[in-house]
Write a protein that binds this DNA or RNA. Sequence first.
DNA 1: GATGAATGAGGCTTCATTCAT
DNA 2: GATGAATGAAGCCTCATTCAT
Lengths: 203, 203, 203, 203
Amino acid sequence: MSPPQPRRKPTQARARATVDAILQGAAQVLVDRGFDGASTNRIAEVAGVSVGTLYQYFPNKEAVVVALIERHCDEQIALLQAMVGDMVAAPLPSAVRTYVAALIATHDRDREVHDAIFRQAMHLGLPSLQRIHDGTRTIVRAYLEVHRGAILPDDLDLAAFVLVSMVEGMIDTAFFVTAPPNREALAEEVSRVVLRYLLGHAD
Amino acid sequence: MSPPQPRRKPTQARARATVDAILQGAAQVLVDRGFDGASTNRIAEVAGVSVGTLYQYFPNKEAVVVALIERHCDEQIALLQAMVGDMVAAPLPSAVRTYVAALIATHDRDREVHDAIFRQAMHLGLPSLQRIHDGTRTIVRAYLEVHRGAILPDDLDLAAFVLVSMVEGMIDTAFFVTAPPNREALAEEVSRVVLRYLLGHAD
Amino acid sequence: MSPPQPRRKPTQARARATVDAILQGAAQVLVDRGFDGASTNRIAEVAGVSVGTLYQYFPNKEAVVVALIERHCDEQIALLQAMVGDMVAAPLPSAVRTYVAALIATHDRDREVHDAIFRQAMHLGLPSLQRIHDGTRTIVRAYLEVHRGAILPDDLDLAAFVLVSMVEGMIDTAFFVTAPPNREALAEEVSRVVLRYLLGHAD
Amino acid sequence: MSPPQPRRKPTQARARATVDAILQGAAQVLVDRGFDGASTNRIAEVAGVSVGTLYQYFPNKEAVVVALIERHCDEQIALLQAMVGDMVAAPLPSAVRTYVAALIATHDRDREVHDAIFRQAMHLGLPSLQRIHDGTRTIVRAYLEVHRGAILPDDLDLAAFVLVSMVEGMIDTAFFVTAPPNREALAEEVSRVVLRYLLGHAD
DNA sequence: GATGAATGAGGCTTCATTCAT
DNA sequence: GATGAATGAAGCCTCATTCAT
């Protein structure tokens, strides 16, 4: 409803620390008491500031959650980019395996927080997940372009979409919906799916 | 001696109609105003009954949403089963294409309602999605068993998990997170992924 | 607010049984769930009838509670009268001891029910307790009249009032407020109070 | 270094005023509309604050009533103690008459409020009345100890219990159940009961 | 800048009561 | 006579938000 932008840019170090505390508190409360138990008063309390202070940096409750999600997404993307940084140079099979492993690792960090935030993102129907998806897709698409000659799919846009949404979606399912029958073998099997799709084989 | 018909069948018919109305109302409100805007009073009003009546059939607000999700899941599963009924007899490639098409069709029916309910399911962390997943997985696993000799994967449990979660997750992503670059070609491309995973080729 | 009289006199045996069941249910619920948990629906359910039936015999909820209290008071008075029936003929000391013992016995019967009903009577500020008091006082006053020559007090009205309210009040306190230090000796000590008041000694 | 005055004494003063206002309001409403008519909204309104404020100081409705009862009990006990302060030094007969008069006076102050609160205490089955009783009993017991040689009863615990519960119970009855035939003579007659119990005579 | 007491709309839920069957 | 589904006013309580200090 109201602009999800922070009311004032926290230029001073003290202010930034306050905002950080609030977001930490928000994450904490989200994890501990679920969405409906996350009131601004509670968040402020856990953050160790007063509600008034919270409202000095965020125009309303939603803005806090949005900011939290945004920050989380940024971290996720940064994490992913760091992990796949030199993937481009690698041969396709090992690149894929690295990518899948990175994605899974990404979900393993801060499971609870990730989970809580993910649910909120779904709940609020926010474009944050799309940001993650699109960012990832761009990276993948670029990679496919480089290897265009070696892979089966022609439509690289579509291929990138399918790859990212499939792998991401699957991992989300594995983490949020139902546990896989064999957690150890999961990464390898997913990699096989991808490799067979791209190459026709998984060697 | 006693009347062959239980005394209040008609009453039950009325009650069932009431429950239906409430669930309809809940779906309606969920779509229109989102979860937080879905108050029991609003639901009752849209359903055309009084709050009191709602509470005669559901112990609390969450129960209404849960019932709605459950019903939706049942419908989804029934729909899927109807569509893949004679898939078993079909050759693998066309079976896969049927399955994928069915899944997509399933998402196309009642887009908005499905969307709203799906979000709630995620939000509430309910096992309903798991039910869908597990149901589907059982079907798929049985199918793979039949074709065991013709496919590459050994671990059929894992294969079934990967297939279902991947395809389902991907379609969810396509519908809820970001639109695919080429909606027409999507089904075929997903089918290809599956077929190459199972056979090494997609012919 | 509305007349506390039953809507229709239950002339038939069946109807009387129904009324009984309802009052039983009311007592039950009052004991089990306290006053605020005693809803007409619950009472009807426990009584094994439908709410509608309850409302055929009682105009509103209060009427049920009032009827219950009335019935209880009647029982109490009858019980008391039975116990002190031939007290008049007895010599004063043993008469007093009989009376006190009867009062205590009266409180011991159906402790829980008595307790619950007593609280309601207080709560509703009903004249029922007054009925018990006045009834008892009349009996006592008559007895004192007979023994006028043998006792110290002149004002028999006042004496009867003091005796009844004191003994009754004390027993209520003993039962509802705090336990006496010596339950066994209580009756004898109370009797002594009364006898010394009447005679100057307790022999 | 740090300010010698804690930062929000004024705040606390304000808060205390608010709590007072709420309790006043509660007493008011209890008297005016009875327990069932005493809604938190009504109490807050009469107190001149918003419901939210009420709930900032009390976790629920019952807590308000309990606090009110507690405060009332404290006042009663303090009042009593003030009145009987130098009773110990007095000779028995006048001490008893002072005590009885004090108790009656205690009931005369704020009749309506006292009445309403007393009913609630019974209704809620709270130990508040017990507190009053036990407090009083301790005082009486100490007094009896001092005069042990001059009185008839041996078991001082029992005697104290009988005295307090009897006198208190009787006065409660006189005030809440039925009016005494001769209000003026009541105190003297009660004193006689007590004195004859303790001494065998009332001079 | 920070604080936290105060606000009050609004959510969830209960329950006395009615009335069509 | 009996039933019990339906009603809806009203109660308790929470929480996003403001503002005087």
